[in-house]
Each structure stands twice: as C-alpha cells, then as structure tokens.
Design a binder for these strands. Structure first.
Length: 642
RNA sequence: GCCGGCGUAACUCAGUUGGUAGAGUAGCUGAUUUGUAAUCAGCCAGUCAGCGGUUCGAGUCCGCUCGCCGGCUCCA
C-alpha cells in the first residue's frame, strides 16, 4: 500500500494510505468538518465522500458553505423527493431532477398534475425517508445494460437520456428503496437533511420543447439546519416587499387596466416624473457623447418589414397588420427599419461615419398571454434604442467605445453588479455563417478589451447578428436582459446601404443596434426592485415633503415649498390637520427621501427641521443650507455616498 | 400558447357543510391644532371578474371566457 500526498486548501500536505476516502480525510482534519462534510473536491472534480481518492491531489472537503456542496445537497434532496413521488404515485415516470440556484426540481410524467395536498403527502413521505438515514451508494453499469434495464422498467425518459449519453459506462445511485440514473455525486446519508420544503409545482415540457410531453415539475429547497429554512422563508418575504408590482401600486407609480389590455403600461404621475428624469438624463448623456436624436412613426408599410426580414423572422412576435386604403401597415416591433430609411434618404461620406442615431422608440410586440410579467415583460415597450452606422474597419473600435458608454450609463443608476453574455447565432438567422463567426469573434475581443467577465449564450443572438447582453437580477433573483449591443452585417446588405469611401467607391457600412436601459418599462421595474422603492434623490417622484406642525404654520410651509420648487426640487406640502406623527408616518410609507418639518421655532429662525427617510432627524438647517444639501445629493446622484 | 393556483369595496383581506355580504386602511363630512412612524366621531362604499348551468335558493357547486400569480417556452 502506497502513500498519497494530499494537499489541503490551507496549503498543508498530509500523507494518507492509498484508498483513503474524503470522509476519512475530513475526520482527520476535525470532527466538525467530518460532521458537516457533504462531498469532496479532488483536483477540481466533485466526488462522493466515500469514494477512494485516486491519487496525489489537492483535496477540499465540501460542506453546505461551498456552492458545489450545496448543489450536491440539493441534488440528493431531489432523489429523496423522487422516491417519495414514486412510492405515492406508482405509475409515475422519472425525467430529470437537477439542483438549481436555490434548491432543486424534479420532473415527472404522471396521470394528474400534483395538487397542493399531494405536496403535503410527498413532504411527509420525504421526512420518513430522511428519518431512515439511508446511505447513498454508487454503482456503475454498462450503458447498453442500463438501457435494457430501464427499458424493462418502461422508464422512457431515462432510456432517452442514456441513448444521448457519451461513453460506455454510466452510474446509478441507490438509497433506501430507490435507484436513479445519475452522474452524482451525492451526500453520504439522507439524515443530513434537517429541513426542507416543497415550494411549488408547474408544468414543464420535456427538454424544454413545447412540442413534446408536458411533465409535472415540483420545486423544493432543503438545508442542513432548520434555521436556514426559516431564513429562506424570511428572504422570500423580504423579496416580496421589493416586488415592483407591489411597490408600483403602493407608491402609485404605474398601473394596468383590463379596459386597456394586458401588458400595456399606464404611467401614473409619480412614475411619469421618474421616467421623465430618467429620459432627461439619457438624452443629455447621448447628446454629450456624439449621438443625434431622431423620431419615427409607430406603423409602417408592411413591405418595409418584408425587406427587413421581420415578416419572416419575427412574425410570431408582431401584432397583426392594419389595413389602410387597401394597403397593409404593420405596428412596429422594432425601430431599426425607420433609422435605415432615414440613412437612405441621402448620400453619406466616410467622413460622416460613425453615425449614432438614438430614439426612445415605443414598439409593440405580441407576447403570449402566459409570459407577461408586471413591467418586466409587456406588450408595449419603449426602447432606448440607437443605431450606429459604422465603416467596417472601425467596427471593433466603435463597439468598444459603446460598451464603455453602456457601463457608464448603468453605473449612473447605481448598478454595478450585472451579468454579461455573448449571444451567438440562433437556428433561424439571416446572413452567412462565416460572417456570423467573424462578428462573434469581434464581440468577444471587445468584451475582453473592456475587461468585462461574460458567459456565452449559444444561439441567443438576434436574427440579424450576434450580440452582447447585460442582465440585471430582480428581487427574486430572476435575471432580466436590459442592455443589448447587437452586431449587424445583414440589414445593411438587405437594404443596400452604402457610403462613399476615401477612394470614391461605394462601400457597405455595418450597423450596431443597441439599447442600454433596454426598455424603459423593464428598466424601471428593475430599478424599483433594486432600490426597494427607496430611490436615490435625483429619481424620487417626491423629493421633499414639507410638514407644518399646525395650521398656523401653513403659510410659512407654502413659502418653503415654493422656494424648493424654484430650485426644481419636487416638493409637496402636507397641510392636513393631522399630527406631525401621522404626517411623518405617511411620508415614510411613501418613501419620500426628505421631510422638512416646520413649526413656530422654524418660522422664528427661518429654518427647517430636516428628517431623512429611514434615517431620522438631522436637526435644523437654514433653508439655503437644506437646499444646498439636496442639490449636492441630486448632482452626485447619491453615488458618492454609496 | 401549455400546466397548476387565484379573482369579494379604491387598497389589504374575513366570509363555517349553498340561506342573497363584513373588517381595517383609504375617501368624504365634522370636531381637534397637534414637535419626529397612526387624534376622534359620523358617512359613503361591492352586477362577490364576466357569461351560462345545477338548485326553491349560488360569493360558496359545475362549465366556458377574461385577467392576475408561479413555472414551461420566448424575449427588451
């Protein structure tokens, strides 16, 4: 028996007998670690705790602290749930049951969808299995044997999975009375799960394909400590308070109406003030950075959309056509054909390029009923759209410049944490594959030059070109695409765009389609959730509420409001005959950033008593000082303080 | 579009086994004149999402439609 040299995460190297397992290494480190150990990472590969370590290697014991440890924990939980379902619903067929960001799901083919009562029964059965403290055991099998094995069990989905797998050997995991085809690894014993909860059910298509069977999915979460489940439930409640649909109603920012139609946003005055602020900032920044602003109509001759390719590649997302004097018109789902038509209205020289044309263009897209979601997914949306017309050689330079501008805009709203994706050629696309690959490589280079970490979204590109997307997460961790920067070599071709190069020849420009906020509606939704309604001062719909203590102070209070308004501060007066406590409470609930409380003392000294939202009393200040404070905070967008 | 859940006053919600609606908040009226998160009283308030069915009788049961919610799929 030889010796193994095991390197631990702290850098120390320890010798172990050959055949040592992760469990034994954990025990050698500490009893605490042995107790919490879920799996082991050997030279980057996650393995079962009871598997022999194959050779000298860096070894890390995984607990619930590590993301990989949690994934193993949740994956094992999904097996336990699958066992419970199979025992309670004998005819059920197993599909897949992976861990997800928080928890897991398992898809089943069953006669009837699961009811809430079914979930309770499944939970009880799961608890029994956990109480057995059953051991997880791995076995390998020849792939073709496994196919025969599962075919006998009529486990169609497992057979299909096996047929698609590479390699001759597959692994099965056993615990209690349950077995499942599974790569693993798994936690040592079911008893390690101290708290769990089945959170929801839903229909889910097999392999995400709506042409295939709809399976029934159950989602769940589990933890090694009861307190962690309590914490999860509390986090969900907190997230609910940040939900833009709830805050939107409470703060009277926007609404929907059945009489208007689903997915069509009605911006209430307070929301409209914020939108106006967002748009003003957006316009100023664009004008300062070499953009021109343009406007285009809401409908256009159908032939325009035929030429652009929208009728063949985007029909499913478009509203029906409108008949006008026997000619067909189309409500616009995008702004690009209009900007292209403007480009074609005259001749351009290479000296004119790049052109950067921006428009807050409201477009309409037919979204299927089931996908609408508050402000995040609507049918009428205003894109902060722009199109750059660029000479081909300058494309990368322009994209690099644009990516930096994009990050600058997002940061101005306080966003610093976002996920970036490179989206490549979809199945349905126009243009030459070689052009696509070159454009994708160009985008990749730009991302690396700017130094943004990114993931690749295979097949996620627009039909006319690859793109860089930036997504921001909502309160529940669902991520929404906001910024998008799209490379386009196709539409210039389709519309036969050209400019006159320095040699006097006609040359084809490339285009960039981009939206930085994405859609004002969605961006606003993300903004509400990000700030939980506690907006930075420059955006807040009401910036200051002036609260007179008695009616006799109303005149002075009105003067204060007027003075603030003269300085473009959005100020309101609360002159109801309520106690200050009530006025403060109402202002706090509306999340108004500042309250100026005025009574006899303030009239006397010509001051205001400043109270900051959720911070409290800041003491008395002269009106001029208070104004200075506000103006500085507005100017800095509150970013310096963060 | 698909699977499941839900839909009661402007808002948040009660409404037992079917016997024809109730609270708090908001609003209105009046009183109160208040010093850092709720002053008091009175009043108004609902085609119980819509349509159809079962029943002597439906907010409660059944069907369809619409909308919303959680997912699937799709995208800004």
């Amino acid at each position: 028996m030889g010796q193994l040299q095991i390197t631990l995460p702290d850098g120390s190297v320890k010798g172990f007998e050959a055949g040592v397992t992760g469990a034994e290494i954990a025990a050698a480190v500490s009893a605490g670690l042995a107790r919490e150990a879920l799996a082991v990472k050997v030279d980057g590969a996650v393995m079962d705790l009871n598997a022999p370590i194959p050779g000298d290697a860096p070894v890390e014991i995984l607990t619930f602290e590590q993301p990989e440890g949690r994934q193993v924990f949740w994956h094992s939980s999904s097996h336990i749930m699958a066992q419970a379902v199979m025992e309670l619903f004998p005819g059920a067929k197993l599909a897949i049951g992976p861990p997800i960001d928080e928890g897991w799901y398992y898809d089943f083919e069953v006669e009837k969808p699961f009811s809430p009562e079914d979930l309770e029964k499944i939970e009880l059965k799961m608890q029994e299995i956990i109480d057995e403290d059953a051991v997880f055991r791995r076995e390998t099998m020849n792939r073709s044997d496994a196919i025969t094995h599962y075919r006998e069990q009529k486990a169609d989905y497992k057979v299909e999975l096996l047929e698609d797998l590479e390699g001759d050997e597959v692994s099965l995991y056993y615990h209690s009375r349950f077995e499942d085809l599974c790569r693993g690894p798994h936690i040592p014993r079911t008893g390690l799960i101290k708290a769990f909860k089945l959170t929801s059910t839903s229909g889910a298509y097999w392999r995400g394909d709506e042409k295939r069977t709809m399976l029934q999915r159950i989602y769940g979460v589990s933890y090694p400590k009861k307190a962690m489940l309590d914490d999860y439930v509390k986090r969900l409640e907190e997230a609910r308070k940040r939900d833009h649909r709830i805050l939107g109603k409470q703060l009277e920012l926007y609404t929907f109406s059945d009489s208007v139609g689903p997915g069509l946003v009605l911006w209430m005055p307070r929301g409209a003030r914020m939108r106006n602020e967002i748009e003003n900032f957006w316009r100023e920044e664009h004008l300062r950075h070499g953009y021109e602003l343009v406007y285009s109509p809401h409908i256009a001759n159908l032939e325009l959309w035929e030429q652009s390719g929208h009728t063949s590649f985007f029909t499913e997302d478009m509203f029906g056509t409108i008949d006008v004097e026997g000619r067909q018109y189309q409500l616009k789902p995008m702004n690009c054909p209009f900007h292209i038509a403007m480009y074609k209205s005259r001749l351009w020289s290479y000296r004119d390029l790049p052109l950067r044309w921006a428009e807050l263009g409201t477009v309409y897209r037919y979204e299927r009923g089931g996908v609408l979601h508050g402000l995040m997914r609507v049918r009428g949306l205003t894109q902060d759209d722009a199109h750059h017309f660029v000479v081909q050689e300058k494309m990368e330079e322009e994209l690099g410049w644009l990516l930096n501008f994009c990050v600058h805009i997002l940061r101005s709203f306080g966003f610093s944490d976002f996920d970036t994706y490179l989206s490549t050629r979809p199945d349905k696309a126009i243009g030459d594959v070689g052009d696509w690959r070159r454009a994708e490589a160009g985008l990749r280079q730009v991302l690396e030059k700017v130094g943004l970490a990114y993931d690749v979204d295979e097949g996620g590109g627009a039909f006319y070109g690859p793109k860089i997307d930036i997504k921001i997460k909502d309160a529940l961790g669902r991520s929404w695409q906001c910024s998008t920067i799209q490379f386009d070599f196709s539409l210039p071709e389709r519309f036969d765009l050209y400019y006159i190069a320095s040699d006097g020849q006609q040359k084809r420009p490339f285009m960039i389609h981009r939206a930085l906020l994405g859609a004002i509606e969605r961006f606003f939704g993300v903004l509400i959730e990000y700030y939980a309604g506690n907006f930075p001062l420059w955006l807040a719909p009401v910036q200051v509420k002036v609260l007179p203590i008695t009616d006799s102070i109303n005149d002075y209070a009105r003067q204060v409001v007027d003075r603030l308004k003269e300085h473009n501060i959005r100020a309101e007066l609360d002159f109801r005959s309520e106690k200050v406590g009530a006025k403060i409470r109402d202002a706090e609930l509306l999340k108004v950033p500042y309250m100026f409380i005025v009574g006899a003392r303030e009239v006397e000294a010509e001051t205001v008593s400043v109270r900051k939202h959720s911070a409290g009393d800041l003491g008395s200040k002269t009106i001029a000082d208070a104004l200075g404070l506000l103006e500085e905070e507005i100017r800095s967008k509150g970013l310096a303080a963060k």
